[in-house]
Computed example of a mutant assay.
Amino acid sequence: MTPTVAHLTTPDGVRLAHRTHVPTHAHTQGRTLLLLHGLAGHQGEWDDLVPRLLADGHRVVTYDARGHGASTRRPADMSRAACVRDAVTVIRELGLVHPGQASLTLVGQSLGGHTAFLAAAAHPELLDSLILIEAGPGAPDPTLPAHIAAWLDSWPTPFDSPSRAAEFFGHVAWSRNLERRADGWYPRVDRATMVAAIEEVAETSYLREWGAVTCPALVVRGANGTMPAADAGRMPSGRSPGTRTDLTVVEDAGHDVHLDQPRRLHAAMSGFLNSLA
């Protein structure tokens, strides 16, 4: 059964909607996994992956990022630092780690992965491993805000039904992030807020932050995704020598690896998690 959505409030007054999924059986290798979705997404995107992780004995926590889903729709601050603070707030407020006993894995897709490795760089004491899905430091791209704006403008809103939204986006998970208004169904995101969320990414290099991440990391790329193979290939050498960075490619998957191939993604994640001491 899907847990009830709860809310917590960040120090700057943003309400974050979150869910905690607890396995039905104890497992000696069970870990806590905090899953971070991408731009314009929501925590329900993980619904196909969560049961597989629970079956492995892991506790799984998800939340709607600020500006997304059932969290505060139009926060004043959409900076990268604010999103990192949110992840840290979730970890601390929900008691996901105990002092001196970090056994937390941050898992992030796309912009959520970007938040995850920035959090790992800033707060290494809070986690001991990292899984990035179609995410990495990349390189500044000044055209990114215009591309995102054009993508959002291409959505034929309002949709006349959730099923039409699922047809357009290609995944039923996206149809679970709609709200009904008088004239139809709309995604629960604000255009200006989404563009604001990636403005820093468009103009800033994060290679230094990536180099500061000390924990083992798995980098997952969809074979048909948007993350360039060359960018992923450079990620191991961007860290201190001897720091573990595993690379894997999921076939028949695009940018939304977790939606396109949840079974194959789970297999890759399980192999990595089971190898951790």
Score class of each variant (00 low, 15 high):
P3D: 07
P3Y: 06
T4M: 12
T4L: 13
A6G: 15
T9I: 11
P11L: 13
D12W: 12
A17K: 04
R31A: 11
L34A: 11
L35S: 05
L36T: 15
G41C: 13
D47K: 08
L53H: 06
G57W: 04
H58Y: 06
V60T: 01
V61I: 09
D64E: 09
H68L: 05
A76K: 11
A76F: 11
D86T: 01
A87Y: 03
E93Y: 09
V97H: 12
Q101C: 10
Q101I: 04
L106P: 05
L106Q: 03
S110C: 02
G113M: 01
A120G: 12
P124W: 04
D128Y: 08
D128G: 13
D128T: 11
D128Q: 12
L130N: 09
T143Y: 05
P145Y: 13
P145K: 11
A146E: 14
A146S: 13
H147M: 11
A149D: 15
A150T: 14
S154N: 12
W155G: 02
T157A: 14
S161F: 10
R164M: 08
A165M: 09
A166N: 00
F168N: 05
G170D: 10
H171Q: 08
A173V: 02
S175A: 15
L178N: 00
E179P: 00
R181G: 05
Y186H: 08
R188V: 00
D190C: 12
V213N: 06
V213Y: 05
L218R: 02
R221K: 06
R234I: 00
P236T: 07
R239E: 06
S240Y: 02
G242D: 07
R244E: 14
D246S: 07
D246H: 03
V250F: 02
E251Y: 08
A253I: 01
G254Q: 02
D260N: 10
D260C: 10
R263W: 06
R264S: 12
H266K: 05
A268G: 07
